[in-house]
Design a protein around this nucleic acid. Structure first.
Lengths: 251, 251
DNA sequence: AAGTGGTCTAGACCACCAT
DNA sequence: TGGTGGTCTAGACCACTTG
């Protein structure tokens, strides 16, 4: 394909990186078809089987999807909500309720120590803070604070979010950064009083525990791009997650 | 391979099912080597590439692991704790602390409505309840209640757990049932008073919120085999999860 | 009918591990 | 040195979609 010299990486990995870069740079947009396996193979002077292996892994990674007989397409950017579903506790087969996301405000601040370590920034590095409110059937269910490194995402503007685009969609669109993978921490806490109002809590409801979610987001090339804190009302709701293994339908 | 007649499933899927059955039945134990790709291919009269595809997917599914130059081996049963790690909140690269699991008791009861629906049992179906206490550095951190269908796991004995075996290890060993996949729900709740004592909570600590985890476990053949409820102290601890996508190290 | 992805085969060579 | 898994190729055929 490209590097015939001391080849450190297998061909199909080089192809993956090549395709990741082209998707990130916007050569193909969401739901656009990629060239066929044979065209890509000819273009890169490798066999169709090698292209196939690269494409298959990019499907598992969440960058592409394929449809037999039709083609290979760029997958949509993941939602700011993430892969977890909001459901009634104890019920596993419920259709999750639709959530809407309302942009609140953007501000500047400095990274906390944990934030700086997780994002591999220096102490007190400048950050953007993007606040969003999630509603289900009109009622507030979660409050998000997404923190982005200000130097990495220089020039970020609030109006990009007012149009309803989420953080991940904006990073893809404006900075060619695609979030593919996250680490999340879950905790049960009491909601800080300052945030209670935004979630519509007052009086006795302040005594209600909330689910605290901490998220570290990685781009398609492994860069750490976002730290997010979410407070999620969960007495009468539960966050559903699938085990990571066994994503293929095996039989 | 086997079925030449109206072939509904691809060959490699049939091979997967065949191998899953042989592993479940105990033909090979944990860390035992399977025959080589070529031997399996000859045995089943298929090509080595087809066997490879089946084996690769079983690695992703968590049933096998492979080591270049050495062979393909049966993966150990997953831990009762699950794939989540217990860490300090805000810290993502921390080495998780070791957890020990203490068996408390086993009892019989009837399925709750949610339980019966999730496990696809009839209402009030008889169940075993297995209680376990998790400790980290000696201090209680989580309380587990695992519910198993009594009719499916007839003859289950408490002494199987006293030896320190977890629920999943026991299911594999005694019933040839291998748990590979779970769905989990997270919620923040106040700990029921009855359980507070077991977690060493009293007085003001009773006002502490706990992380409630609800888990539905699936066997390798897709059977719903366990419902589990966990109360997890999480003010000074957080449960870490990886996003399901991108488990391969891509570069 | 033409084009796409999905399966299956056969063979070559490489990288790693054991002996 | 021989055995293992890992990569890569070339070609065949099937299943599905679109025109």
């Amino acid at each position: 394909m490209i590097a015939n010299a001391p080849r450190r990486q297998p061909l199909y990995v080089q192809i993956k990186q090549f395709l990741i870069r082209r998707v990130a740079e916007g050569e193909w947009l969401e739901h656009d078809p990629l060239p066929s396996e044979w065209d890509l193979a000819a273009e890169m002077s490798v066999s169709q089987g090698t292209v196939r292996k690269a494409l298959s892994e990019l499907v598992v990674d969440g960058l592409l999807y394929r449809q037999q007989g039709k083609g290979t397409f760029v997958a949509p950017v993941i939602s700011d909500w993430g892969n977890g579903l909001l459901q009634s506790p104890g019920v596993f087969d419920e259709v999750p309720s639709r959530l809407s996301c309302e942009f609140l405000a953007i501000s500047r601040m400095n990274a906390s120590d944990d934030m700086a370590v997780a994002l591999q920034l220096r102490r007190h590095a400048p950050m953007f803070r993007v606040r969003q409110l999630w509603r289900g059937q009109g009622r507030p269910v979660a409050l998000d604070e997404a923190y982005l490194p200000a130097e990495r995402f220089d020039g970020l503007e609030a109006r990009w979010f007012r149009s309803g685009s989420g953080v991940y969609a904006t990073l893809q669109q404006r900075f060619s950064v695609r979030v593919l993978r996250c680490q999340e921490q879950y905790r049960a806490v009491m909601l800080p009083r300052d945030d209670a109002g935004l979630l519509g809590l007052s009086g006795a409801a302040l005594e209600e525990p909330v689910l605290s979610l901490l998220r570290l987001s990685f781009s398609a090339v492994g860069e750490r791009v976002e730290w997010r804190q979410r407070y999620c009302l969960s007495s009468d709701l539960a966050l559903l997650r699938q085990d990571g293994r066994c994503r293929h339908r095996a039989w």
